[in-house]
Every structure is written in structure tokens, then in C-alpha cells.
Design a protein around this nucleic acid. Structure first.
Lengths: 184, 184
DNA sequence: GGGGTTTGAGACATGACTGTCTCATACGAG
DNA sequence: CTCGTATGAGACAGTCATGTCTCAAACCCC
């Protein structure tokens, strides 16, 4: 019954994704522990948010590893990535939204690392001749984040079916909305 | 020198886009008025946020009208829309982010109206044979929001150049990332 | 210039959240 | 069973944002 630090983080993420302004008390209740215990795990709200961010980055990075995004064909790598990202998409959506809230503060090194690997993926795809060169790797990275987050939110409030998300994100990102060579 | 209610809203939007948790005092300072006057314009924080939402929806709707999205070729209509949306993209990004924060509350009728017109646009495009039918209009609408918001944030913190946004959003949304018939 | 109106500055009470602390209790290992 | 540890409940002070109010100063129209 004793909840692990990570279990608490998981619950916190789930709640904060829906309600970014939830109080420490709300979070504790959501995790099924007392506020006192929550404070024993995390020195304060800031510490909790930072831990949350670290966990999210860790998960994200693990997905990049699982998908082996630096290997082989970039398009296939991207397909594997979106699939691997699926289970953490809610988490990602939270972090992506949260990120906009932080005043300049210290730019997180973890995020920079993720950005780097993603832009490298898109750049590789361009060099392999698969990705358009008129759309910058930075934009494609940003777009991936945005589409994943949009999809996650859409699922959260029932506008989208969870099972469709992977296909929708991937297909739109790769082929766009127009009928043409992009679609099957 | 006297600031109009809408001027205040504009400043409030600009600030809140960057820092969603800004206090009434911060907002007043940013608008160059006192907190007392801010309260004279808006009964409270909630009222201000609601007014902000209404203004945003109004602007968005105006863009839909300007772009005449129900007329002619759906692809061309979408091009016009993204162009018309450009000046309000920051505002849109704020509202899109904010929207995730509100617990179920009363679903805003304005947003529903916008969603309706957008999904109708994409559906028309599908019927005209221009848009893929394996991506639902609801998803395409969601994706448009997400891409616009991503782009706006990217511009805000310097990862993207403002002048490129229109092209980037439109091209990705229409043609996707793959090289093929989609690009010029 | 005068009188009505709007504004800014700030005081004030209130409420919410935070972080810390205490203490009694439940739990688990030996 | 017993002792050490972790937990929950709650008290507590401190901080911050809010919303209301007052009053003096600035403003504007006539």
C-alpha cells in the first residue's frame, strides 16, 4: 500500500495535466496520501514540479531509445518514435503546456537534449531525401510536440479516440491533409 | 491616454500568454493602469478571463469571416484562413493553452461554433476530393489549433521566425513532412 | 475657472495555499 | 509481542492575491 515516490509523481502528473493550478492538498488527495507525506517526499511545490519534469524527460528519452531513432531510415524511425511515445503522450502534453508557463528561468538541459535528438532525426531524414527541406528540422520538432499534445488533449476530453491517435499524428505529420502520394 | 477596455484586454492577453499565473496587479501594471481601475473594468479575475475568451473568439471568428472559409475551394479557403489567423496567433495560443486548464465548467458556446465552422471546412474539402478522408475533420481541426499554437510559442521564444510561420503551418498541415507531391 | 468624473495610491479584511510542526496511530521487522 | 519507523490528521504562522473601500489628485467638458 505504501506508495513509491514515482507512484506519487504519476498521480500528480495525471492531476496536473487536467488542472495545472491544483494545490498541494489536491495533489496529495489525488495520490491517496496526506499532505504531510507529500511534503516528506518533495521539499515543496517547486521540487515536485522539477521532479515531474525530470521524470517526463526521462520517459521521453527512454522512448527515443526504444524507438532507436538514430538508426536506419528516418521515416521508419519516426514511425517507431510516435508509437513509443504513445504511452507517455498525456505526460508529454502536460510538460509541453507547463513549459510555456515558466518565465525564462533556467532553460532545462534535458529539454535541450531532447530537442537536439529530434532535430537531428529530421535533419537526417532530409539528408536521406525523405523529408522536405523547405520545412526546418526545428519546426518539424515543434510540430511533433504540438500534434502529440493536441491529440492527447483531444483524447482527454473525448473528441478523439485513443486508439486513433498514433495513426492520426503520424499520418498528418508525414503526409499532410491533402490527398496525394502521402496517403495509402 | 485613457485606455479603452479592449486595450486593457490586449495587454492582459499579451502578458498572460507568457505567464498564465500573473496576478491582477501584474496585469494592471502591464496595462499601465492601477489595480483599482482594472477592477473597475472587470469585476474580478474570472470576469477578465471570460472577457478575454470572448474577445479571442470574436477575433477568431472575424478571421474566419475575412478568409471567407465557406466559399470556393476548401484548400484555398484554408490558405486564406491561416493567413488571416496570423495576427491573432499569439492570442489563439493563449486561449488554446488556457482552455486545457478549465475543469469541465460550462463548455463555451463560442468555441463550439468555431469548431463547427472549421470541421465543416475540412469536411467540405474531403467532399471536394482535396482532403484525405482517413483523417477526420475533428482531428484536422485539432491539428490546426495545435500547429498554430506551437508555431506561436516557437516564435515567442525565438526558435522560429515570425515571417516563416504562415508558410510552415500551412505547408505542414497540407502536405506533411514527406517529400512528394505535397511540396512545390 | 468650476464641477463632475475618472484615476492612482494605498489601507484593509479576507481567503487560500504553503511549509513546518506535533502527536497519536498504524505498520513492519525482528 | 515490541520497538523503530512511516503515516495521517490537524494546528499554526507566514505569505500572497483578491476584492472592497477611501481619499486626494488629475482630468475633461462646459
Amino acid at each position: 500500500m505504501t506508495l513509491d515516490r514515482n507512484d506519487v509523481l504519476r498521480e500528480a502528473a495525471a492531476l496536473l495535466t487536467r488542472r495545472a493550478t491544483a494545490s498541494m492538498d489536491d495533489i496529495a488527495k489525488a495520490a491517496g496520501i496526506s499532505r504531510a507525506t507529500l511534503h516528506r517526499h518533495f521539499a515543496g511545490r517547486d521540487a515536485l514540479i522539477r521532479a515531474l519534469e525530470e521524470l517526463g524527460i526521462e520517459r521521453f528519452e527512454a522512448a527515443l531509445d526504444t524507438a532507436r531513432i538514430e538508426e536506419g531510415d528516418a521515416v521508419e524511425a519516426l514511425r517507431r518514435l510516435v508509437a513509443a511515445l504513445q504511452p507517455v503522450s498525456g505526460f508529454l502534453a502536460f510538460l509541453y503546456g507547463e513549459n510555456q508557463l515558466f518565465e525564462g528561468e533556467e532553460v532545462n538541459a534535458g529539454w535541450a537534449r531532447l530537442d537536439l535528438r529530434l532535430t537531428a532525426l529530421f535533419r537526417r531524414g532530409q539528408e536521406q531525401g525523405n523529408f522536405r527541406i523547405d520545412l526546418t528540422p526545428v519546426w518539424l520538432t515543434e510540430a511533433l510536440y504540438g500534434l502529440m499534445a493536441s491529440a492527447a488533449w483531444g483524447v482527454y476530453d473525448g473528441r478523439l479516440a485513443a486508439k486513433d491517435v498514433e495513426y492520426m499524428v503520424l499520418e498528418l505529420l508525414l503526409g499532410g491533409a491533402l490527398r496525394g502520394s502521402g496517403d495509402a
